[in-house]
């Protein structure tokens, strides 16, 4: 939304927008309602969703130190919050600049990529089950973007 709006504002300047741009704008605005619904759901069910993910994660990684799992969970709580805003703005760059870049060195030190991979997959499965009206399609690209970023940290 935000990047598209900016693009349209820059494009318009001293002229009226053309029909195709107005259609793009309308489509973007139409998708705002379901995005907001997903945002509200994530906000109101944060503890419920993540507690389920945490319990499954502990069961699947019995050898892993709890502290490592906690660190990874804490960062994924953060990733999901920033992803939710990036989803509202429909702007992957928001997630990149506001969180992922900053997280790069931290992930390198914590070395929890293997936990993150499991956590991401559990979170996606959980959200697929829980989010009504196929809402997963709005948030999933941002969660995938974060997981891809974490996987690429060496």
């Amino acid at each position: 939304m935000y990047s598209l709006l900016q693009e349209l504002i820059h494009e318009a300047e001293s002229k009226y927008l053309g029909q195709s741009d107005l259609v793009k704008l309308l489509q973007e605005m139409a998708s705002m309602r379901p995005r907001l619904a997903v945002y509200r759901y994530l906000r109101d069910n944060e503890v419920y969703i993540f507690q389920k993910v945490a319990d499954e994660l502990l069961a699947q990684l019995p050898q892993e130190k709890t502290r490592n799992i906690e660190n990874c969970l804490r960062h994924w709580l953060s990733i999901t919050r920033y992803s939710a805003m990036a989803m509202l703005l429909n702007n992957p760059e928001y997630l990149q600049r506001h969180l992922l870049e900053w997280l790069t060195d931290i992930v390198r030190v914590y070395e929890y990529q293997h936990i993150s991979k499991k956590l991401h997959s559990l979170l996606i499965s959980r959200l697929k089950e829980e989010l009504p009206d196929n809402g997963i399609k709005y948030i999933e690209p941002f969660l995938n973007q974060a997981q891809a970023h974490i996987e690429n940290v060496h």
């Binding site: 503890v47 993540f50 507690q51 799992i69 906690e70 709580l77």
Partner: peptide, 10 residues
């Protein structure tokens, strides 16, 4: 057991 509620309060 990890409490997500506690993680959020830390």
């Amino acid at each position: 057991m990890i409490s997500v509620g506690d993680l959020l309060k830390s």
